[in-house]
């Protein structure tokens, strides 16, 4: 399947128009920075965790966990289903929602000056009849032994207890492919009420044949006064 450059120009332009303006987000901004690649026959289970801390901030002590199962549905498309649990102080941990995610690889790696993909996510918040639809462009560009990954996402929220609105999110990761098991990076996140950046470390360990464990760890610090001071992010993904 081939995509002409004009289609990607149009998609990028439309997304830019959609999310232009001033940012303010009520969702989880610090999450995975998505690569625009999908492998045929891929299957994985994934666990993600984040924790936010700042004594005098409303988001202090907030924790979130996601457990997912993903599989490719075509040579260039993969689905993943998640269970989401959140703890927002002073409440206890609870299963807060479900999410369905589709990743679509648009271009072959290295085919053009950058690699492109699309992300679609639909999340339903448990018991509250609130929904969140996220879509956007995933881009990665290789610079020698380093890779720059950018996610430009538009988020539409609606439901009984939240205001219907569009939001924009931007995630960036600049990674040095030092060794398969150790790849340092820096990450940047911009969204509603959140602007943060910080170091991260990730890697992959192969077990046998196509069985491998990917891991990611990041500490994201606020770069403005509205943002919670520190956010810790951790992810494990077992592919088989």
């Amino acid at each position: 399947m081939r995509f002409s450059p004009s289609v990607l120009y149009a998609a990028c332009g439309a997304l830019m128009l959609l999310v232009s303006g001033h940012s303010l987000a009520d969702g989880r901004v610090v999450d995975k920075v998505y690569h625009p690649y999908v492998q045929a026959l891929e299957r994985s289970v994934e666990y993600r965790y984040f924790y936010q801390r700042q004594a005098d901030h409303p988001d202090n002590n907030t924790m979130g966990q996601k457990l997912g199962y993903g599989f490719s549905v075509a040579e260039r498309a993969a689905l993943e289903i998640y269970l989401i649990a959140d703890r927002v102080s002073p409440e206890d941990y609870k299963l807060s929602g479900y999410e369905l995610e589709l990743r679509w690889m648009l271009t072959e790696q290295g085919q053009y000056s950058a690699d492109w993909g699309l992300l679609f996510e639909l999340e339903r918040q448990n018991n509250q009849d609130n929904f969140e639809f996220t879509t956007g462009l995933l881009m990665e560009k290789e610079f020698g032994p380093t890779s720059l990954t950018l996610n430009a996402l538009a988020v539409y929220e609606w439901g009984k207890t939240i205001e219907t609105e569009w939001e924009g999110e931007f995630r960036a990761q600049y990674r040095y492919r030092l060794l398969p098991a150790v790849q340092p990076a820096i990450e940047l996140y911009v969204g509603e009420n959140y602007k943060g950046a910080g170091p991260s470390l990730m890697g992959v360990h192969k077990f046998d044949k196509q069985k491998q464990l990917k891991w990611e760890f990041a500490v994201i610090m606020a770069i403005d006064n509205d943002t919670v001071d520190r956010t810790l992010r951790f992810a494990l993904e077992y592919e088989f």
Partner: peptide, 10 residues
């Protein structure tokens, strides 16, 4: 309403 992220990032 539409909210967004700075043009510089995009």
């Amino acid at each position: 309403r539409i909210k967004g992220i700075p043009w510089q990032h995009l």
